[in-house]
Design a protein around this nucleic acid. Structure first.
Length: 433
RNA sequence: GGGGAGAUACCCAAGCGGCCAAAGGGGGCAGACUGUAAAUCUGUUGGCUGACGCCUUCGGAGGUUCGAAUCCUCCUCUCCCCA
């Protein structure tokens, strides 16, 4: 616990750090200063891992906890069975129940380590909306909850309207009903945990306000919502994508090293904004870094701190150490030689690789053949082009002769050869005896 | 149901009998410059080959021709207009 409940101004704090896109009601600020409440964010089990996009609501919850409120992480076991139409231009395919349940377990494990689940008043709790949605019968739900929703309002929500206007996609009754379920969650959490705040991405606005309205109709208190801005990078790409793929929190799917790299490559124009969002550094410290970015951008101090902080937050100190160690080998500019297999295996554990019998090194393995065998190049022509353009390296030493015969002297360790294309695309070949 | 337009490589898009492995742009991959940045400039972007060259590719199946992405027939799909 970081006892910060004495510090007023959570909303102001969040706003200064760039978390706030919309607030449902200006009264939120005063309410949060006058009472302890709970704040929830929902996480859909649509995949077996959370990704960087989920980090914003997670850190949002952490800020609430630091300011003396109880964070509630809601696993969308029920809503995940239905499919949120928000931000989707087409109907989703329903996932099997088994798959949803298994996703729930894995994202639950991921969420556990970001929040304190102690027994205090600000201890986080994790719940699954399946638990309170599932017992309802269809008829009871329609009578007790559905009656409070006007279809006229429901079809005016952005997520639904977009799909109604799209001629060929449309929207199923199932997805249309989604907002009712999420609204019911908010009401339920208010009733059972006194939760008065929901946070989420900007696409969640309609769902959040649906919950606020429902609670009012059922005679409950005034509830509040905050949405976060949609994060874009300065170059106009969606934040959290690397080569089109999501950057995952799961260390198997995205290695700590790759996560570290993702952030170290942050654009100067983005790095300060991201430091505010993804780290807990004081704004004062961040302001100093901002000056450094302006005066000495080449040191990339801000990027290094951002990458370290986020890697530590997600993968812990040990994860940061391996990421940092790998970075030194990969970007140290030294030839890679005289290493042990075990060190290189760790550094390159997620690197695409190929296997070859060790005898090939005694025969006629050419540079070009090695490039194709490792999977680095799809054809010999492509391999030759790469070498002649000067973008190919073996063990970090530029290789210029595509026909050279490789020998054991070209190994970086007992059995591993490290190939590199351009500045940072690595491939390795393991030579098995 | 009637009428029209179209389907080309990762994407968009030119080509409309041989000079087409197919213009141009985007994207990708490299190089230079840099800070593992941005911008810019350069090269490259079907396969095999050291190279001549050969092989596969222009929605699908046939056909005409010495020769077809280009012409003909049928089929499949997409879009637009009118009912």
């Amino acid at each position: 616990m970081h006892g910060r409940s004495d510090v007023a101004g959570l909303v102001e704090h969040l706003n200064d750090r760039g978390f706030i896109h919309q607030i449902s009601d200006p009264g939120l600020e005063r309410m949060l200063e006058q009472q302890r409440t709970a704040c929830y964010a929902g996480f859909d089990p649509s995949d077996s891992s959370l990704h960087l996009g989920h980090l914003i609501p997670i850190i949002g919850l952490m800020h609430f906890q630091r300011y003396g409120h109880r964070p509630i992480a809601v696993i969308g076991g029920a809503t995940g069975m239905i499919g949120d139409p928000s931000g989707r231009d087409r109907e989703r395919t329903l996932m099997s129940i088994d798959l949803i349940r298994s996703h729930e377990r894995s994202i639950q494990r991921q969420l556990e380590h970001f929040l304190n689940f102690d027994d205090t008043e600000t201890g986080a709790i994790m719940v699954n909306n399946y638990d309170w949605t599932h017992p309802y019968s269809y008829l009871d739900f329609l009578r007790e909850i559905g009656k409070h929703f006007s279809v006229n309002t429901m079809i005016s929500k952005e997520s639904v309207r977009m799909r109604l206007e799209s001629r060929d996609q449309g929207i199923s009754y199932t997805e249309f009903s989604y907002q009712i379920l999420q609204a019911f969650d908010f009401h339920h959490l208010w009733k059972t945990n006194g939760c008065k705040v929901q946070i989420g991405g900007s696409d969640q606005w309609g769902n959040i306000t649906a919950g606020i309205d429902l609670n009012r109709r059922l005679g409950g208190e005034q509830l509040y919502g905050i949405t976060f801005p949609l994060l874009m990078t300065a170059s106009g790409r969606k934040f959290g994508k690397s080569e089109g793929n999501a950057v995952w929190l799961d260390p198997i799917r995205t290695k700590p090293y790759e996560l570290f790299q993702y952030f170290i490559q942050t654009d100067d124009k983005d790095v300060i904004r991201f430091l505010k969002l993804f780290t807990f550094l004081d704004l004062k410290e961040i302001a100093e870094l901002e000056i450094l970015v302006r005066d000495e951008p080449q040191t990339r101090e801000a990027q290094k701190i951002l990458a370290s902080e986020v890697t530590r937050l997600i993968h812990g100190e040990a994860g940061l150490q391996t990421a940092d160690g790998s970075t030194r080998i990969l970007f140290g500019d030294e030839p890679i030689c005289n290493y042990t297999d075990s060190i290189l295996n760790r550094v390159f554990s997620d690197t695409p690789s190929g296997n070859l019998p060790k005898e090939h090194l005694e025969q006629d393995l050419t540079v070009v053949n090695a490039m194709v065998a490792s999977g680095m190049c799809g054809s010999k022509g492509e391999a030759r082009r790469l070498v002649s353009s000067g973008g190919f390296y073996i063990n970090n030493i530029r290789e210029t002769d595509p026909t050279r015969i490789l020998t054991v002297n070209d190994l970086a360790s007992d059995t591993i050869m490290v190939l590199r294309s351009g500045k940072k695309r690595y491939f390795i070949i393991r030579f098995s005896g």
